[in-house]
Amino acid sequence: MLRRLTLTAVASFAALSAAAPAATAVTPLLPLPPLPVLQGDWTGGQDTRTRLTVTVSESGNPTADGTFELECDPAGGTHPTAQRACDLLADAAEAGDNPFVPTDRNAMCTQQAGGPAAARVQGTWQGENVDARFSRANGCEISRWNNLVPVLPSAR
């Protein structure tokens, strides 16, 4: 059985090897069409603006809880501190930091509670999709939250 399979594979390979040059000899090579000249926007049309939906609950500040829209370049939306939030995000991008990266599961975090505050940030930042969740469950999460104030409200 194994011998038959081996012979069939060798014969198939030989037949394909012989047919390939014959097929290319029959078909003349055609020139490629001219490539379009790249002009203008080198980002490939990718939208690099920031558009985020920030949802906050149980922050301890009733005026900070709710859903807010944040747009940058220019700063706007329903976010209460849009310009300051956009400035923080621009500084993070310039420094090469991504404030939306979750805490490493292997991180050693202090076991302190920062309250029941929770937040979710969705949308685009620097042209990249964002879907990040924030809490104040331990020292690492509290630090992560604080590093994103004023995008997220300061906790009371």
Rank of each mutant, 00 (worst) to 15 (best):
R49Q: 08
A92V: 03
G40K: 09
W145D: 00
T50H: 06
T103Q: 11
F100D: 02
C140S: 08
I142V: 05
T110M: 15
A19I: 14
L35T: 09
P34F: 10
R156C: 11
V149E: 03
D104T: 02
L7T: 03
V37G: 03
D65F: 08
A137R: 04
S143I: 07
A14T: 10
A132D: 02
A137N: 02
P28S: 08
P21L: 10
A9T: 03
P62C: 12
R4P: 07
E69C: 08
T81R: 07
E128C: 06
L30M: 08
N61R: 14
Q111R: 15
D131A: 15
G66K: 05
R144D: 02
R136K: 05
R84S: 13
G96T: 04
E128I: 09
L35A: 15
A113H: 12
W125N: 01
E128R: 15
E71W: 10
Q122L: 14
D41I: 13
L148T: 03
E94D: 14
R105S: 15
A75F: 11
P62R: 14
N146K: 08
M108H: 12
A119M: 06
T103F: 03
V54Y: 00
A90V: 12
P150E: 00
R105P: 07
A155Q: 02
S12T: 15
A117G: 08
T24F: 15
P80G: 06
R51L: 15
S135C: 05
D73P: 03
A23Y: 13
A11F: 12
H79S: 06
D73Y: 07
R144V: 05
P36K: 11
E58Q: 12
A15V: 14
N147Y: 04
G44V: 10
A9C: 11
N129V: 12
C86I: 00
L5Y: 07
G44D: 10
G114D: 01
A113L: 14
V56W: 00
P21H: 05
P28K: 09
P80C: 09
V151K: 02
A113K: 05
S57E: 15
P28W: 12
D97K: 07
T43G: 01
L29Y: 03
P33S: 02
P21K: 01
T124D: 07
A64L: 05
A14D: 09
E69G: 12
L148W: 00
L89K: 00
L35F: 13
